[in-house]
Every structure is written in C-alpha cells, then in structure tokens.
C-alpha cells in the first residue's frame, strides 16, 4: 500500500487553508480595511468636508470590497478558486451576524421612515443615501462578512459611510474604539498573509507527481 494517512492529512490541511482565502481570510485586504477604517473616521472627525468629499469618503466600503475581491482573484487564489466549506459553527455564526444586522437595519430604517412621516416631508438626498447604505448592510454581510475582522471593519466602515453621506460625523472619542478595531484587523490580516506565504512555500516544496 503506497498511501500514507499523514500525507493525506497534510494535503487536506493545505487545501483547507487555501480555501479560507475565498471567504474567512482576508490577508492584506484586512490590512487595507483597517487602515481605511481609521483614516475615514479620522478625516470625518477632524476635517470640514464638502459634499463631494463626503461622497468620496462614503465610497470607502466599496474600495475595501474591491480590494478584497481583487486580492482574492489576482493574488490569494490565483492558482484557482477554491470555495471554503464553512463548518457548522461558522455557518451558525455567519447566519446570526446577518440576522442581527438585518434586525438593526430594519429598526433604523423604520425609525427613519417614522420620523419622515411625522415631519410630513420627503427625506433629502443625504437621508436617502443613508437609508440605502443601511439597507444594503445585511446583504453585504451575507456575501462578505465571514470573520471577526470582516465584521469589525465592514460594519464600522458601512456605518461611517452612512453617517458621512447623511451629513453627520462620529465624535472624535470613537477614534479609540475604531483604532482598536482597525489594529485587530491589521494584525489578523498580517498573520493571514504570513500564513499564506508559508502555504505557498509548502505547495512549492512538493515534488512533481506526474
């Protein structure tokens, strides 16, 4: 018999690690997300922003998601896409994240609609932008938020984006919390990226089979 269970286990572990970069491991995109997150909160807390700059700042989540997808396709999974099969625990946690954000989103939208109705006027463009971003949050979470760092960066970036487009801003005290979340995302991302480099080296070290 030429089969070694240890070799098979190693192959399985490598495939699983590679597959993580399709969903739960962001690598450098988590680093980019963390930096974008802190920079956007910092800019909105201390700078007087014109309408155009507000729109640009509100695009930060899109930029992050774009970086995520480009890095996945062009770098982390350039040897072929492998879709991670989440464990039952991961599926449960993802489902509850989406439900939680869905409920919060519905509550916020309900309150917005109620206040617009009470005031007897149609919401302005800023408020409509705010509502659209809040409404898309659960959908984006369903598609992209598969890890703690995705959740931290994604939710805060989307909230910031909604507030910016609505004409408001988070007070500077939020920078402490946001800074901690950004640091977690950057550290996670760097660790994932290092693990990816090690994984590539392991694949490269395999000899040819035929």
């Amino acid at each position: 018999m030429h089969v070694n269970l240890d070799d098979l286990d190693q192959l399985a572990a490598r495939a699983q690690r590679y597959a993580r970069y399709s969903r739960s491991a962001g690598g450098l995109s988590s680093v980019i997300g963390g930096i974008l997150l802190f920079a956007s909160f910092l800019a909105n807390a201390y700078l007087e922003l014109a309408a155009v700059n507000r729109v640009v700042l509100a695009l930060a989540p899109l930029l992050w998601l774009l970086a995520k997808e480009l890095l996945r396709v062009g770098y982390y999974q350039r040897d072929g896409r492998v879709l991670q099969a989440p464990t039952e625990k991961e599926k449960r946690s993802h489902r509850w994240t989406v439900i939680y954000l869905g409920v919060i989103s519905a509550l916020v939208l309900g309150m917005l609609a109620y206040s617009a109705f009470q005031a007897g006027r149609v919401p302005d463009a800023g408020m409509l932008g705010y509502a659209v971003i809040v409404a898309t949050l659960p959908l984006i979470a369903w598609r992209w938020f598969w890890s703690v760092s995705d959740f931290l960066v994604g939710v805060l970036l989307m909230c910031q984006s909604a507030v910016v487009i609505g004409g408001g801003n988070y007070p500077p005290i939020w920078l402490l919390y946001v800074g901690a979340c950004a640091a977690i995302a950057v550290l996670y991302g760097l660790r994932e990226h290092r693990d990816y480099l090690a994984l590539k080296a392991e694949f490269a070290a395999q000899g040819p089979r035929g």
Binding site: R14, A15, Y18, D79, V82, Q84, G210
Partner: peptide, 22 residues
C-alpha cells in the same frame, strides 16, 4: 477526493497544482 473534501468546490487549475498532476 481529499482536496475536494475540504471545499465546496475547487477549480481544475488548483487541483492540478495541489495534487501535482498533469
């Protein structure tokens, strides 16, 4: 089979690389 058991699906090019097959 071992590689595929770890994912929902995998592209041909990855199987080629991971399993070291032509």
């Amino acid at each position: 089979l071992t590689v595929l058991s770890q994912a929902e699906h995998a592209e041909f090019s990855f199987l080629e690389m991971a399993c070291r097959l032509s």
